[in-house]
Amino acid sequence: MNQLVEKQPDLAIVWFWKAINSGDRVDSALKDMAVVMKQQDRSEEAIEAIRSFRHLCSKQAQESLDNLLIDLYKKCGKVEEQIELLKQKLKMIYLGEAFNGKATKKARSHGKKFQVSIQQETSRILGNLGWAYMQQNNYEAAELVYRKAQTIEPDANRACNLGLCLIKLGRHGEARQTLEDVLLHRIYGSDDEKVVARAEQLLHELNPFNCVSSPFDVGQSVHEEIMERLDLVMNEWTPFRSRRLPVFEEIAGFRDQIAC
């Protein structure tokens, strides 16, 4: 099948359809078909296929199908759909439903297996959510999400994105400090040459600006919007508070930090 996918992807898709319709290994058939469709610039078809047939797949396959959908939404520019699915995944983590209720899961990348913790997954999803908000030019929401991600698991690439958000919001002093943390190797991933180069470029763009700022430089309307968004999240999750995972215990403190 691998050779068929490489040499005749269209024919491979036909075989995947046959497997799905006959109920033969639907989990792998649907996922593999969606991947091939994505490679063939048929992402819209892949999205529709997953939406239409995921109910035939096992519970264990749903998470990987969600991840596939997020990639497909990103490729198609479906930002709203991407945001909604990312929020849904965060809520599943909050309810303890992700990873089948376990603290870690096995993942595979480039043929290698490794363990992913719930904290790492939460931080990754928050990073993706922040990027999606940036595509909407909603830098206030993106900043909030990136800051939360960084409190869970600091990452140099996300720090660059946070720095860009702060630049867009006119808070150049905070942006400079965030980006300098990358250059001074204070954050995981700071040894990546591409990330360092990006931080340097963003700092270079900052040079013409006056870099004196504080959290109080943010307009009151922006502050209120940030608080309103966080309150919405808190209100949505409050009924399930007793079941939430420890990683979300920080949210209340994070809210107080913004309120100060």
Rank of each mutant, 00 (worst) to 15 (best):
I93D: 03
V212A: 05
I152Q: 04
N138D: 15
H110L: 08
L86S: 03
Q257S: 07
V35K: 08
Q220S: 09
Q8S: 06
V35T: 06
D181A: 13
N235C: 02
E140N: 05
L86D: 03
D71R: 09
A19S: 07
E153S: 12
I152T: 02
E250N: 03
L65G: 09
D155M: 05
R108P: 02
S242A: 07
V218A: 12
S52A: 15
V218P: 00
Y146C: 01
N207F: 09
S221N: 08
R54F: 09
H110Y: 12
F114R: 15
K18I: 13
V196H: 05
D71S: 11
V196S: 05
K168F: 10
Y94N: 00
L86F: 03
C57S: 09
L164H: 11
Q82M: 14
R54H: 15
G253V: 01
E6R: 10
S117C: 09
E81W: 14
H223W: 14
G189L: 01
H55Q: 12
K168G: 04
N210V: 03
R255D: 00
E81V: 02
A49K: 09
N157K: 13
E250Q: 12
P9W: 01
A49L: 13
G23N: 09
F240Y: 15
N2H: 13
E225F: 04
D155A: 04
L129R: 06
S109N: 10
E63D: 12
Q120H: 12
D181V: 00
T151W: 10
E193R: 12
M134W: 07
A61Y: 03
W17K: 11
W131P: 00
I167S: 02
G163N: 02
V116W: 00
E228T: 13
V218R: 09
G96M: 06
D155G: 02
L72I: 06
V79L: 02
A103E: 15
T151Y: 14
I226Q: 11
N157T: 01
F216A: 13
S123D: 02
E6N: 07
D27S: 04
L169H: 02
L69H: 07
A103P: 01
H172A: 01
S242Y: 12
G77E: 00
L179Q: 10
A98W: 05
R54D: 14
H204K: 13
V212E: 11
A19T: 01
V14L: 06
A61Q: 08
I50F: 08
L179R: 06
E140P: 06
R51Y: 10
L4P: 13
F99G: 00
V26H: 02
V14D: 05
G189R: 05
A141T: 10
K89Y: 00
K89V: 07
D32T: 15
K113L: 14
K74W: 08
Q150V: 01
Q8A: 04
C160Q: 04
M33E: 06
E81L: 14
A19R: 03
A61H: 01
Y139M: 05
S190Y: 10
V182T: 03
L4Y: 12
E205L: 12
A149E: 02
E97S: 05
G219L: 04
E44Q: 14
L179E: 08
R25D: 15
K74Y: 15
R147N: 12
Y94W: 08
K106C: 08
P9N: 00
F209M: 14
R241C: 08
